[in-house]
């Protein structure tokens, strides 16, 4: 479970995130929506410990990301929005590096690397440097890394970007299974169809402020609309 409590973040005079409180429960897929520059990535970066929190608290499975950083980081796996990291490592080296950091046993990692890299069709490229991968392949490698690690909390920033339809479908299935097994899936997306099909709950953020958190039926009820999520989203996020 991820608990975000009255979190603020400011860059200079600009408020990036203002008094956001969110609960991402276990056993559910939670979608985080908002237009560009709304504060989605800043919030995710604070949750993952990349950015320090100005005020408020964030806990992951009860562990505070600010005061109990390493223990909190052990709880989640993260797929960043731009997977341009460790470009000079070979795909396989990256997966082993990650497995060592998270202490995955030798036989377990071997089986998982093989299973998931084959599932996402990157097995044959594991001997190449990440630098030579396409955007989609890098995305798949980072997803594979998270799957090898198998943490209880998944945090994915725009995970479908660059994925081919087959991989996209497989990831959605994995997300469903992971949540169904009592784990947490927290992801941001621009693709509203994906959110609509996949999410048990959503949160919408605009200009750093949380506009809504709840299930899709709750959203329709609250905004008294039978429109598609796209329409509601557009109305909610348009400038006043």
């Amino acid at each position: 479970m991820i608990q975000i409590d009255h979190v603020h973040k400011q860059y200079g005079n600009k408020k990036a995130v203002s008094d956001v409180s969110l609960t991402v429960p276990t056993g559910k897929i939670f979608g985080f929506l908002g237009p560009n520059g709304a504060g989605k990535s800043t919030t995710i970066k604070m949750v993952t410990g990349i950015l320090p929190v100005d005020s408020g608290t964030i806990t992951i499975n009860g562990k505070d990301i600010t005061s109990d950083t390493i223990a909190a980081k052990q709880e989640f796996g993260y797929v960043p929005d731009s997977p341009d990291l460790f470009l000079r490592l070979k795909g396989l080296d990256y997966l082993h590096f990650l497995s060592d950091i998270y202490g995955i046993a030798s036989d377990v990692r071997e089986a998982r690397i093989e299973e998931y890299s084959k599932m996402f069709s990157i097995y044959e490229a594991l001997g190449d440097q990440i630098k030579t991968y396409s955007h989609g392949m890098r995305q798949k490698l980072f997803i594979t890394g998270m799957l090898v690690q198998q943490p209880s909390v998944w945090i994915l920033d725009e995970p479908m970007t660059g994925l081919d339809p087959k991989s996209s479908y497989q990831l959605k299935e994995l997300m469903r299974n992971h949540a169904a097994n009592g784990n947490t899936v927290f992801f941001s997306s621009h693709v509203l169809e994906v959110v609509e099909q996949l999410c048990d709950e959503v949160a919408i953020i605009r200009k750093g402020e949380l506009l809504f958190q709840g299930t899709l039926p709750e959203m329709r009820e609250r905004f008294q609309s039978d429109d598609s999520l796209e329409h509601i989203f557009l109305e909610l996020t348009q400038d006043a």
Partner: peptide, 14 residues
């Protein structure tokens, strides 16, 4: 490298 990965190094000591 243009080479297809052949599984070498998949198992490694932690």
């Amino acid at each position: 490298s243009g080479k297809v990965f052949n599984g070498k190094g998949l198992g490694r000591k932690p």
